[in-house]
Design a protein around this nucleic acid. Sequence first.
DNA 1: ACCGTTATGTACGTTAGCTGACATAATGTT
DNA 2: AACATTATGTCAGCTAACGTACATAACGGT
Lengths: 240, 240
Amino acid sequence: MSAQLANLAGQASVNFMLLPLPGEQLRRVLDVGEVVRVTSLEPAFAAGEPVAHVHFPLTAIFSLVARVDGHKTVEVATVGNEGLVGLSVFLGASTTLNEAFCQVPGESLRVPAADFRRLLPETPMLRRQLARFTQATLIQTAQAVACNTAHTVSKRAARRLLMTQDRVGKDTFPMTQEFLGLMLGVRRATVSEAASELQSGGLIRYSRGVMTVVDRRGLEEAACSCYAVVRAEFDELRSL
Amino acid sequence: MSAQLANLAGQASVNFMLLPLPGEQLRRVLDVGEVVRVTSLEPAFAAGEPVAHVHFPLTAIFSLVARVDGHKTVEVATVGNEGLVGLSVFLGASTTLNEAFCQVPGESLRVPAADFRRLLPETPMLRRQLARFTQATLIQTAQAVACNTAHTVSKRAARRLLMTQDRVGKDTFPMTQEFLGLMLGVRRATVSEAASELQSGGLIRYSRGVMTVVDRRGLEEAACSCYAVVRAEFDELRSL
DNA sequence: ACCGTTATGTACGTTAGCTGACATAATGTT
DNA sequence: AACATTATGTCAGCTAACGTACATAACGGT
């Protein structure tokens, strides 16, 4: 396993969609995939365009955003090594209305969409995993509908930071207020107020695009309940 | 086709997930399904509980809502005869975090979850259709995230009315301000202001739970662009 | 004809987040 | 050392929607 998914630096890394695959099925995926390094804000695909590749993130983290009225963006899902970027290909569509881009740079197993489509009929276990991931994504997105409608920016910001921390696995990671604003669908100035509130409460520390979670427990309390709901669903997914 | 799906009143009605099935596969679905009449606000299933049945709506319309903080609700998807209520069963989960209940009473083909699971491996065309519907639902929900974050209640109300009208196929249908408030995640009083604005503009007419779309074109202009985006996706789904 | 129930209208004070604008501070570049 | 660039802080005025509360109106049953 670790050998097959060794990343560019030679470190073992894992994607949970591929983890339970029998060796034969895993080999088929790896045969057509390529481990690539994705850089910050690099798009995986653009809205409306045919999807050229799907991504199984290894250390990279992607954001799926919806854009309204041409400019305003809101994140609809975050995808790390627990899932796949490009579900629409799995679901039989050739295009997608969401944009996906890299939130935290890192490595990702990139598979051409055509190869991926060809490979699906031969990999039942992968289909099963992806179906469960689709369900988790639906729940994540559904919760975001309610969360964005009901909760304050401060609570949502706390939740969003926890989501990223879960996926990077470290307490320090790249995050600017500008980016957080794009994710939450609010102005950067509003993020500034929410963030400095969290900072003065001793929950986080940040400077020029580097975010550190200081008091994880406290941040969980500052976040809305949506965090725990979605987290539970993804914990279950990872444990399958 | 019309014979197999004749509803309780003997009228032909159709569910687009079943429409393209070859006779053999359709028969298997109908063998285990039962056409039932669902009444207003009747739940298809509750959050967190095992899903006992899935529904292929015929003339009924269902709402999927997310609940936060125990009371506040927001709609995450509307499902009429273009889809299935109970996607989580299709996706391999036994429970769901969303609640689903009947928005517009009517008839629905109800299939026990266990039978549905058993039937899936034998009905590839149904799986294909449901995968496409899953994609459309993801897009609908993703758009709702952005819409609820970015748009005014008035525009969202207009959009929501159009969505229901599309599914009932008539310009008059049941809709109270209370219900609309639950869907939009806002107070009833806020809906009252938005609705009377739309009414005085000559776009709709309503009284005691009966809504009539008077100026369809005008209502489309009053709605946010999210309507057209989601509508296009579902038009494509129906035409497959 | 009456009355309880349900649907809708409205109003006042409050607040979160917006628009728009500008200020400060840290970093990299030359 | 000077400067451009990028990240962050802040402020004054505005608006949509909120919480709360109460009023009106239409319908259904007895």
